[in-house]
């Protein structure tokens, strides 16, 4: 599976997106901390974290014997550069052209 496939697969699950939101709110959590207030089994969270880690959306650091999970937004930036930015440009140009045309009409 390519890097992009791993990434989109990881993002395709609402449970995993929720985990990403929780790390965004509070980065560097342990598995136990992430399991609190979540409607998922510990095993489920472990599996989701493994998928996120494989997609490089979660980076792991060890602090003594504690495994800390960090949200890694770098692949999201790569998606943005590859899949959003280039499709935005024509729309922005269309909006700019529309604005210019409407403003020119207004001057008549």
């Amino acid at each position: 599976m390519s890097d992009a496939d791993l990434l989109f697969k990881a993002l395709a699950d609402p449970g995993r997106r929720k985990l990403m939101d929780r790390l965004h709110a509070h980065d560097g959590q342990t598995l136990s901390e992430l399991c609190q207030h979540l409607d998922m089994t510990r095993q489920g969270v472990t599996q989701h974290l493994a998928v996120l880690e494989a997609a490089n959306l979660v980076a792991v650091r060890w602090r003594g014997r504690e495994k800390l999970h960090f949200l890694n937004p770098v692949p999201l930036q790569e998606i943005y550069d590859r899949w959003i930015r280039k499709f935005e440009r024509p729309r922005l140009k269309a909006l700019r052209d529309l604005k210019r045309r409407l403003e020119e009409d207004g001057e008549d």
Binding site: D3, D27, G28, R61, F70, V74
Partner: peptide, 14 residues
């Protein structure tokens, strides 16, 4: 203590 610091960890594979 983690609460007394701010940090992030970013990873990219090149």
């Amino acid at each position: 203590n983690a609460a007394n610091r701010s940090h992030f960890v970013y990873v990219t594979f090149i």
